[in-house]
C-alpha cells in the first residue's frame, strides 16, 4: 500500500458507498466475508444467531465501497450491500482524504 501513488484523476473519481445488510439468522459463520472484505468493514461478532453461529457485524460503518464482494462470496445468501445514493453518501472529498491518511499510516 505504501508504494501506491494517487492516480492523476483522483479528485475526479468518486468512491461509491454502500450499506451492508446482514441477514443474521441465515448466516452459518463461514467467515468468507470477513476474510475477503477489501475494506475490513466486517468482523465476526461475539453474539450468536438463532442457529448458534457467530454472524459478522459491521465495524466500520461508512467505509463500505459497495464492491459486492461479501454478497458474491457468501455461500448462504446472508449478506449484501446496496449503493448509497450520492446525495446521502458521506462527503467524497472528506472520505478520500481520510483514506489517504489511512494509506499513509499503513
Amino acid at each position: 500500500m505504501k508504494f501506491w501513488r494517487k492516480p492523476l484523476d483522483y479528485d475526479k473519481v468518486s468512491v461509491p458507498h454502500g450499506t451492508v445488510t446482514i441477514i443474521k439468522d441465515r448466516c452459518k459463520g463461514c467467515g468468507f466475508c470477513v476474510e475477503y472484505c477489501p475494506k475490513d468493514v466486517l468482523v465476526m461478532s461475539e453474539g450468536f444467531n438463532k442457529k448458534g453461529y457467530h454472524p459478522p457485524e459491521v465495524v466500520k460503518e461508512g467505509e463500505c465501497v459497495n464492491c459486492n464482494l461479501c454478497e458474491m462470496i457468501c455461500p448462504d445468501f446472508a449478506i449484501f450491500s446496496v449503493a448509497i445514493p450520492e446525495d446521502e453518501a458521506p462527503e467524497n472529498e472528506e472520505e478520500a482524504s481520510e483514506e489517504g491518511e489511512l494509506d499513509d499510516e499503513d
Partner: peptide, 16 residues
C-alpha cells in the same frame, strides 16, 4: 432457504 449445505461449503457461492 436456508439451504442444506454445510458451513463453509462453497456451492452457495457458485449458485450466487
Amino acid at each position: 432457504i436456508p439451504h442444506i449445505w454445510c458451513p463453509t461449503c462453497g456451492i452457495g457461492t457458485v449458485v450466487k
